[in-house]
Design a protein around this nucleic acid. Sequence first.
DNA 1: ACAACTACTGTGCACGTTCACAGCGCGGTT
DNA 2: AACCGCGCTGTGAACGTGCACAGTAGTTGT
Lengths: 340, 340
Amino acid sequence: MSGERSKAARNRPTIHDVAAAAGVSRGTVSRALNGGRNVSPAALQAVLKAVRTTGYVANPAARSLVTQRAHSVAFVLTEPQQRLFEDPNFSILLQGCTQELAELDVPVLLMTASTEVERKRTSRFIAAGHVDGVLLVSSHTGNPLLEELRDSGIPVVACGKPIGHEGQVAYAAADDRSGARLMVEHLRSRGRRRIATITGPPDTPGGVERLAGYRDVLGPDASPDLIAHGDYSRAGGEAAMAALLERAPDLDAVFVASDLMAAGALNVLHDSGRRVPEDVAVGGFDDSSIATSTRPALTTVRQPFQRITREMVRLLLEQIQGEPPAASILPTELVVRAST
Amino acid sequence: MSGERSKAARNRPTIHDVAAAAGVSRGTVSRALNGGRNVSPAALQAVLKAVRTTGYVANPAARSLVTQRAHSVAFVLTEPQQRLFEDPNFSILLQGCTQELAELDVPVLLMTASTEVERKRTSRFIAAGHVDGVLLVSSHTGNPLLEELRDSGIPVVACGKPIGHEGQVAYAAADDRSGARLMVEHLRSRGRRRIATITGPPDTPGGVERLAGYRDVLGPDASPDLIAHGDYSRAGGEAAMAALLERAPDLDAVFVASDLMAAGALNVLHDSGRRVPEDVAVGGFDDSSIATSTRPALTTVRQPFQRITREMVRLLLEQIQGEPPAASILPTELVVRAST
DNA sequence: ACAACTACTGTGCACGTTCACAGCGCGGTT
DNA sequence: AACCGCGCTGTGAACGTGCACAGTAGTTGT
């Protein structure tokens, strides 16, 4: 990254040029542009006009250097890269956070930390002060990155409850447990009696909480035969569904802990000759774009992604302002479609 | 974004601290860290050790200020936001570019420009010098952003041929036309005679080129009845398929210009009682993650996304170094699965 | 009348780095 | 012996901004 300066960089007007054009001093220009307090109306107008004529835009590096703030935020994904484009949830979170922050003129840096090398790089990068805070999308517990970030003192907001760090790390999450209860109660109300479940990984909050909600409703009916573990991937959903059919061929419903896994489960049920929902009812979780694209369309539990991203951003900005980390638990909603 | 300084920002070691710890001067530390030329082995070792003990990481803002380089790059998406999580192509491009650049320690800023407001914001942001270059993912022609960027003189690489700007703007693209030919020839070789197509929007390179490839093969057989336009969305694919069935109920194959639209078309064919591939063969384009998740799995044309992203990054870095914009056209490949 | 306050303005300094330059010692050539 | 070139080193300046401070003019209060 060296060589000729681009046309954009060359001759870019500085705050001095604006001051000269407006007939005031640098300080006045700076004040006029940052809040405009203690600036006379005449000076303010002159500055604004000079900004227009010169095409001045403040140099972010110079500003960062003196304010000790990067004025940007990192979105860090610790999941395998595959996930970003297989599971729409991640894109939705990314897009929601980006949009939310764009309105505040805060750019989002996208970083991944799925391998050891990437984690080191990301960690070092963040430690360098490139960003003021981190939006961390990492479901698996035990990832060293979270502790590294916490130790470095940089504001962090996790998406989903950070198991083992509750109270120390801010987070926003849907109420997984009661969402799962909603779904399982719904399946029961449809007359289903052999309700199986495909869970998320046991080291993720969604894996734990959604299973807990399932157990809340079924109690002793939640036999181990009816519980299979998935990894939130489509292939994982397929494998888990196949295992369930092997162990409990008489099941008449499945609550799947994510829409993507549910789509995999639907394919396996289809291949096994079972009709959905006549023979087996299928419930998902997320209400992602997948839910309406399967045949039949998925009954699912809606995660309020827009509120989640809004809360993540709010919690992060709060911490950047110096407030202590907090948490937000958001309600879920049952969305009934054709699969139950 | 003001308030207390975070723990990370407080007491961060500077190059002075490293110099003091190593018993050398700032200049020597700087030289040792940037290439290490004209530095004695003893000094180099001392500096490296001091860096380790102090935990020094260079301040990016200070570096940017003096080098006049942001050392970062923007990934700008001008499509409707919906697309980012509906169509895996965008996530793949994003993830590919991010990974490619991460290895060079260049962070990627994600920005959208789907509305007028966003475009203005993004344009201003880029003009401010936050980034050294732009990876532009914008299929529709006539977007003012491209001209704004070109006028500002910042290096830009488009993904897909920028219609009307060839030769002025660098780009990387798959060879859409010959890819389409591959698919239509394949359908013919399967004995299909009434081959329809669902195109992309006529103001996109994929919309134009893939249709041209279809016409190349079919010649006079490409009757208007057999051509429907989609918008690269799943819903668009559904609508186009429904229209085709209306106009040409005897069709026995469809070449769809994207996997996502093809998935929509499959659903409509399924709902209309037609069997795939027995009654109607369906070919997609992209070989995205969707292709293996439909039932039946999609025969499709593989876009070499990894090479595309690699080329985009290469072309961008070249321009940042001062070289003129160039273009890369990459070959496609037919992937035969169950839908044909 | 003078002091005290308010509203506004200009100036020096600092942020942390890179780069150009000058200085140094040392070995080899004139 | 004086000179030159070479490898290495330290130092001052500059990048462009925000902020603290000092200063000025005008207004209010006693």
